[in-house]
């Protein structure tokens, strides 16, 4: 059994061992071992040239990562949380995402940016948001959201193998989660959604931090005789609509569980995409369970209340059975 954190570290180590062009940089990734201890021990193993601590300047070091990628390196940039990544949005949107297109295919940016996302650890609004949808909005980049230990490894490996900028969103509550990890396995295709639990009655769609809630909800629903199918979205851009549509075509109902805010969020995009594809399969409106439209509160009881809960997923699923 390995942790999600170990799995990412395993991938980083394998990448650095196999390819000299790979290096990791970010705030506190070296001496401190990473804000979430993902890179712990890597400085000792690979040295300060490849495990580089940066100043608190996201725009600067993400921009440096883009430059390194353009120059032929395979940089992996760790941004401490998605909240801080906004400082680097200009580099991401105006440079990383556009370079291939604006150069007529002459340049490519094989950059990987990893960052922690999500709430639930009582570290308040500035460290707890889920802004993946901001990135998933932008053509020219790809967005992955591993929800399992194996995916944490595989997705980092595949992100580095991809010739374009790939963003990996690691839910901060998952770092300590343990599960089976096959370090020898060929990494799975990261761009496809996967049915994690088959069912006939309603499709629950989650990813990263909400997949576990969907599986728990499915467990609870099964006790009431409702067979929920749980789909792990995995890739937030491009979205694997064929897999989602196939599931909804089977169950005719869907509940989307998104830790982001509802307004302008990914859940709405998924609803719209499904509506465009399988409207005539729907046996009622698609539901979504999202985070309350507030900055994530610090107080535990309020934070718990603001984030999607298993109870709300169960309630939404049962509601969907009634059309």
């Amino acid at each position: 059994m390995s942790s999600y954190r170990d799995a990412i570290r395993s991938a980083l180590r394998q990448l650095m061992q196999e390819d000299e062009r790979v290096f990791l940089m970010g705030e506190d990734v070296g001496n401190y071992g990473g804000a979430y201890a993902v890179s712990k021990g890597l400085l000792e193993e690979f040295g300060p040239e490849r495990i580089r601590d940066t100043p608190l300047a996201e725009s600067g070091f993400v921009g440096a990562g883009i430059g390194a990628a353009l120059g032929g390196m395979r940089p992996i940039v760790e941004v401490m949380t998605v909240n801080f990544s906004l400082l680097a949005l200009d580099q991401v949107v105006n440079n990383a995402a556009t370079m291939r297109h604006m150069s007529g295919g002459q340049f490519e940016v094989p950059l990987v940016v990893r960052m922690a996302t999500g709430g639930g650890k009582q570290i308040a609004a500035q460290h707890s948001h889920s802004l993946e949808n901001w990135f998933a909005h932008v053509p020219g980049i790809k967005c992955l959201a591993p929800a399992t230990v194996q995916d944490a490894r595989d997705m980092v490996l595949q992100a580095v193998a991809d010739p374009d900028p790939v963003f990996v969103f690691e839910h901060q509550l998952l770092y300590g989660m343990t599960g089976e990890l096959d370090e020898e396995a060929a990494p799975a295709d990261p761009w496809r959604a996967i049915v994690r639990r088959p069912g006939e009655d309603v499709t629950l769609i989650g990813w990263a931090g909400t997949l576990g809630k969907c599986l728990e909800a499915a467990e609870a629903l099964a006790k009431e005789g409702v067979e929920a199918e749980v789909v792990d979205l995995r890739c937030l851009r491009p979205i694997d609509f064929p897999t989602l549509a196939a599931s909804v075509t089977k169950t005719h109902r869907a509940v989307i569980v998104d830790e982001g805010w509802k307004t302008g969020g990914l859940a709405g995009e998924l609803m719209a995409g499904l509506m465009e594809r399988v409207f005539y399969e729907l046996d009622g409106p698609i539901r979504r369970v999202c985070t309350a439209e507030v900055p994530i509160p610090y107080a535990k009881h309020m934070e718990d209340h603001a984030l999607p809960t298993v109870e709300r997923v169960v309630a939404a699923a049962k509601e969907s059975l009634r059309g």
Binding site: C290, V294, R312, A316
Partner: peptide
């Protein structure tokens, strides 16, 4: 608002409070 009706009391408080 079907989405609102499925029992999301948090939002009802939150949206009005802040939004």
């Amino acid at each position: 608002a079907p989405g609102e009706a499925i029992g999301e009391p948090v939002e009802s408080v939150g949206e009005t409070a802040y939004g």
